[in-house]
Design a binder for these strands. Structure first.
Lengths: 175, 175
DNA sequence: CAATTAACTGGACTACAGTCCGTTTGTGTG
DNA sequence: CACACAAACGGACTGTAGTCCAGTTAATTG
């Protein structure tokens, strides 16, 4: 099923492929497809699973500054840069997985992971601030739909640079 | 048509009302409804038109700091606060209007307005930075879907305060 | 006023996500 | 091996967004 889906997505683009088409190509009933993945965003999330896990591993136990060991501020910067790379590499899949159903982005487990990670780092880097909310705010411009829209006007390098400026601004101590 | 739509939305919630239902309630064919408003997000945008215009007027020619006359940094802060109020007041309508079709938020004219406004102010408040991108980034946590999701964990006051912190961080001069 | 043309209208129609249920397939038991 | 039962299956079915076109109304002109 995942192979068939990946093939169709590669050939026709993620948005253009219907769940019926995936089911047919996989030689499987529609019911089976939906029972297995819940909905289209679940199917796409399953395809992203490997890459996502890899990034999470690098955060949890990879070398600093992305992994543990660096200063919190540096880890935030490294996370934003690494997540932006991940985003640029899989933008169309991520967009579908985040927008298939309303609020999908915020319900899937990985969002919780990214948020928790940033929240802990920001609490250290910026004591006294509402790290929990700021983590959400920093994830907002990392939404696939937002980046997709912005990429129509700014190239990837500008987006990455701008995100770095934003991260810096959130980290730096206020006088 | 707008009256019928507003009534149904009030009674059953925006998401639960189908375009067929609006057409039927308005005593009009579905084709007419779609020709007039393009899609569901267009219909909802039409309902928000008044409120949106009012905020735009206050920005273009109202009293400072939201209107002209204040320092750019203060105007950015005032905009974020005023937009957050607007958002909280019409969250469900805005969410539908921004998510009805993919990328809808970034295509409608009002996004251009908010972006242009912020972009000009940020260019003054923070010379040398990529004000254009930063304006997009500051609008990202003001997306209705983002705020809706965050409101499940943080109350409106925390969101407003966090947005103010974010705006401050973007405005303050770096050493 | 009649004829011609342009613009508008309504609802049938298509495509798609997601659900439901009768049917098949596999598994454990006497 | 025969049977009962559970789990997995597939495709028909539903509801909705959005399209399309045949019919109707309104405007224009001789």
């Amino acid at each position: 099923m995942l192979e068939a889906a990946a093939k169709l997505f590669r050939e026709h683009g993620v948005e253009a492929v219907s769940m019926d088409a995936v089911a047919a190509a996989a030689g499987v009933g529609k019911g089976t497809l939906f029972r297995r993945f819940g909905d289209k965003s679940g199917l796409v999330a399953a395809l992203l699973d490997d890459k996502e896990r890899e990034l999470q591993e690098r955060i949890l136990s990879g070398p600093p500054p992305l992994g543990p060991g660096a200063l919190p501020g540096d880890r935030v910067r490294a996370f934003v840069a690494a997540y932006a790379d991940y985003l640029f590499a899989h933008l169309d899949l991520l967009r579908v997985s985040e927008t298939a159903s309303p609020g999908a982005r915020y319900r899937i487990g990985s969002y919780r992971f990214w948020h928790r990670h940033l929240s802990i780092l920001l609490a250290e880097a910026r004591p006294g601030a509402d790290a929990d909310y700021l983590a959400h705010a920093l994830l907002a411009p990392l939404a696939a739909e937002h980046v997709t829209a912005v990429l129509r006007e700014c190239d990837a390098a500008r987006v990455a640079a701008g995100l770095a400026v934003l991260a810096d601004a959130l980290i730096a101590d206020r006088p």
